[in-house]
Computed example of a mutant assay.
Amino acid sequence: MGLWGGAPEWIELSGGRLLWWPGAFAAEADAWLAQLGREIPWRQHRLRLFGRELDEPRLSCWMGEAAYRYSGRTRAPEPWHPLVAEMRRRLEALCERPFNGVLLNLYRDGRDSMGWHADDEPELGPDPLIASVSLGAGRRFLLRHGGGERRELMLDHGSLLVMAGEMQHHWQHALPRMAGVTEARINLTFRYLPPQGREE
């Protein structure tokens, strides 16, 4: 299928499409990682899980043109950072789709993680396209289909992953903990919020 190769290729999955490009931004990755690590206003957010308030196991920042509600919280947007805005322009050209928001996550080491979920918030519209850039430490990315199929990718420094079509209806994804990972990872997931889904 070419899913593990080094060149970009759209892969047709059961109920969705996936673009996997391991070396998409290899030339820029070191500089991007250093600048974003220094200049993004990273915050420790809280989430409600089984009736309890807990720290999210990562730092994050929502950036863009409108507020975004996910994990039971509404996040006011930070203004576009110049580097992130340039990344957005490049991804819009590549994906031939507009993006007006991005969720940035900072995984400080292998103890930080993201649980199983789908990016299926109503604010994103019916079939959202999510473009994800990974910088820093390589981490396992798990995918599971409602029918039982599973996939695993290693998201390395400078890689691009795009989930499209009906992916968010049929697939969930997660970034599990990884023992022995001591370096940080920054992930940027670009998305588009249709006007009717925005909270101004």
Rank of each mutant, 00 (worst) to 15 (best):
A29H: 04
I11F: 05
W21M: 07
A34V: 11
G15Q: 13
C61M: 01
I40C: 08
A34S: 10
D30V: 02
E39F: 03
A34C: 09
G51N: 11
R17D: 04
G15T: 13
L13E: 06
H45Y: 11
I11W: 09
R17F: 11
A24G: 07
A31M: 01
L19C: 14
G15C: 12
I11N: 13
L54S: 08
G64F: 01
R52I: 03
R52E: 09
G64V: 02
A29Y: 03
F25S: 02
E12H: 12
M63I: 15
L36C: 03
E12R: 12
D55N: 15
S60G: 14
E12S: 12
A29N: 01
A29K: 00
G64T: 08
R43A: 09
A27Y: 00
I11T: 14
F50D: 05
A26S: 00
P22S: 07
P22C: 12
G37E: 14
S60P: 03
W62G: 05
G51R: 11
E53R: 14
C61H: 00
S14Y: 13
M63K: 05
E39G: 10
L49Q: 10
D30H: 02
L19K: 11
F25P: 04
L18D: 04
F50C: 09
G23A: 05
L18C: 11
G16C: 04
E39K: 05
R58D: 00
E56M: 13
E12Y: 06
L13W: 12
W42E: 01
S14W: 11
L19M: 13
M63F: 02
W42L: 07
I11H: 15
L19Q: 10
G37A: 11
W32L: 15
H45C: 10
L36M: 06
E28W: 03
L54P: 08
D55H: 11
G51M: 13
E39H: 07
L59K: 03
I11G: 02
A26N: 00
A29S: 07
R38E: 15
F50H: 15
F50R: 12
D30P: 02
I11C: 13
E12Q: 07
H45L: 06
R48N: 08
G51E: 10
G23E: 13
G16W: 15
P22L: 12
R48Q: 14
Q35Y: 04
R38N: 14
L13C: 14
R43L: 03
A27N: 05
M63Y: 00
E56W: 01
W62T: 02
W42P: 01
A24L: 02
E56I: 03
R46N: 06
M63A: 10
Q35L: 14
A31C: 05
L18I: 05
